[in-house]
Design a protein around this nucleic acid. Structure first.
Lengths: 347, 347
DNA sequence: CTGAAAGCGCTTACAG
DNA sequence: CTGAAAGCGCTTACAG
């Protein structure tokens, strides 16, 4: 099938038509451009009859104000950038976090009358691009999503002076306000639950240690175990299912006697469940498994996954609100959201 | 923590500083604005020494061209809209399709030097907003993602004359080029596989019938069965896990003897697996289950899910390329991508 | 190869 | 309450 795709609408004769301008509307209505502008922008100081006739001309011509011209003169864009770290080569590309955060934030931003510009920041080159993009004045503010601690981007962007917030605490403090869930508290809950069950050898599968969430979850695991005199058994993952499966295999090799695993997120817990099944270990009878996040998939594992509920939707909503507040008030406070344990079958 | 969030950078004294303009760079370099513009845009007709001195001024002042001014005068934005139908109330909000498509398309678009604007289209109100947004000239083109057939948006947007493509075939033909996978062929593969196994009572869990993918998958199921003289056993889902679980329950009630289920996507197959487990049916011994899509989660179900591989990543890439072609050449051909069966444990 | 000038399509003080 | 004019920050024919 062939479909025409001209840049602008054309008449039946194929003559390109330009979109009508403010000038055209003014001419059609027989008033000044100023008056049309005032009507369009809903200013109260317009006579009712003028408003009438202008509105008529607007609908008649199908007038829509040109965005670029508006942005140029008002020095604002009504656009917010959502900047997401882009893992190389599709890594974690179906991570539910991405969909949840982007979707929740977009919805709320649009409800607030803002457009959203989605920016992926992966390579050094793309980081440069992001910086230029913000400097070019394309957006009124930005939201950073789960940056890893090694990433220089937050510091660079903070220097632009634009209102920026972070979804997830950054490792460099003071750069910008953030919203995060209580990773420390949540991980403590998880490990204590395992201890309460009388588990003796409790291992963990950690997330990538350049992310604060992974650091916190590992730290809390270590300290909670240390309080009971037990030793840590740690394998490293990167928050993907496959890394969880591999880490579990390694854990089983290192300590065949282990009877519990705390995975730093649900995706890795799902991977661990597969390895345990392949190894013939029963869950939770032989090995208890607990995850973190409480993603929807945790309801569908066999056995159903016990996990720590982190309020992803609320976190996204609060981060968005934080940004909106920062834009209007010039300041905003970081917030930490509480977590809770959800006991199902796996532990 | 309190963080300052001024609109613009300030000096140590707190004096707001404006970003430097082309004018400032020209003054600093001692040349005309025209020359600066030419250097910035890499035009070849510039004397080397002028280029030198301009570049020096640019880096010295940290100059970045204002996007709005550029867009206004050039009448293009270098921005592409990705328009995604937003299901009400978080329905399917962790659908891996969303993440995959948005991510793959963004990556490719940015590699092509385009910015991406993410637009959620759910309510009637938001549909209006989208239309205005495109009419305002904010983007050079758009990509529609999995619109349902009842949605009037594609037709409305097609009338803007902007280059637009669809990720997934639309039910109204001829509106715009699209890229889709072979839903008909894939579903046929699935049902035949079940037949080849000697399954006698083969049910299906359909997707929402206002989507062409769901329609095609159901049609192929029906026709393939009819060829063997078997009757269709259909339950309706909406492509979510929970709907798959509920549909499976209903199917079991309607026909306790069924020995196979074709779920129209993997998410629903995952839901069906849970119901079957709860009902004490062994998979695949008692009931064979086959899905569609081959999402990553299909590798982690117990038992591992047999499914039809639909090339989501490639579909997104091809759709993006289609749009880029449409923008540059003014025309582009729709494409259908082949599917294949991936046999694992569940069928 | 370079610069002065016009103009992209709006908004916004400023007079009236 | 209304309109003429200036200006937002660029690019691009057009002379030279």
């Amino acid at each position: 099938m062939l479909v025409r795709g001209e840049r602008s609408p054309v008449t039946a004769e194929g003559v390109p038509v330009r979109r009508p301008t403010l000038h055209a509307v003014a001419a059609r209505a027989g008033v000044s451009k100023s008056s049309v502008s005032r009507v369009i922008n809903g200013e109260p100081t317009v006579a009712p009859e003028i408003r009438q006739i202008v509105m008529a001309a607007v609908t008649e011509l199908g007038y829509v104000p040109n965005g670029a011209a508006r942005n140029l003169v008002t020095q604002k864009t009504n656009t917010i950038a959502i900047i997401v770290s882009d893992p190389p080569a599709g890594l974690a590309s179906d991570d539910p976090m991405f969909a949840m955060v982007v979707r929740a934030a977009s919805r709320q931003l649009e409800a607030a009358g803002k457009q959203v510009s989605l920016v992926l920041a992966g390579s050094d080159e793309s980081r440069k691009r992001v910086e230029q993009y913000l400097a070019a004045g394309h957006v009124d503010g930005a939201m950073l999503v789960s940056m890893d601690g090694a990433d220089p981007l937050p510091a660079v962007l903070a220097r632009t002076g634009l209102p920026i917030v972070s979804h997830g605490r950054l490792s460099t403090p003071g750069l910008m306000p953030w919203v995060d869930n209580d990773n420390l508290g949540g991980a403590r809950l998880a490990v204590r639950h395992l201890l309460d069950q009388g588990r003796q050898r409790i291992a963990t599968i950690s997330g990538p240690l350049d992310m604060t969430a992974a650091q916190d979850r590992l730290t809390a695991y270590r300290e909670t175990l240390k309080d009971t005199g037990r030793r840590s058994i740690v394998a490293l993952g990167d928050f993907t299912r496959i890394s969880g499966a591999e880490a579990m295999r390694q854990l089983l090799d290192d300590d065949p006697q282990l009877d519990a695993v705390f995975a730093a997120n649900d995706l890795m817990a799902i991977g661990a469940l597969r390895t345990l099944r392949e190894a013939g270990r029963r869950v939770p009878d032989d090995v208890a498994v607990i995850g973190f996040d409480d993603i929807e998939a945790a309801l569908y594992t066999a056995p159903a996954l016990t996990t720590i509920h982190s309020p992803m939707g609320e976190q996204a909503a609060r981060t968005t609100r934080l940004l909106l507040d920062l834009i209007t008030h010039g300041s905003a406070d970081s917030v930490t959201l509480p977590t809770e344990i959800v006991v199902r079958e796996s532990a």
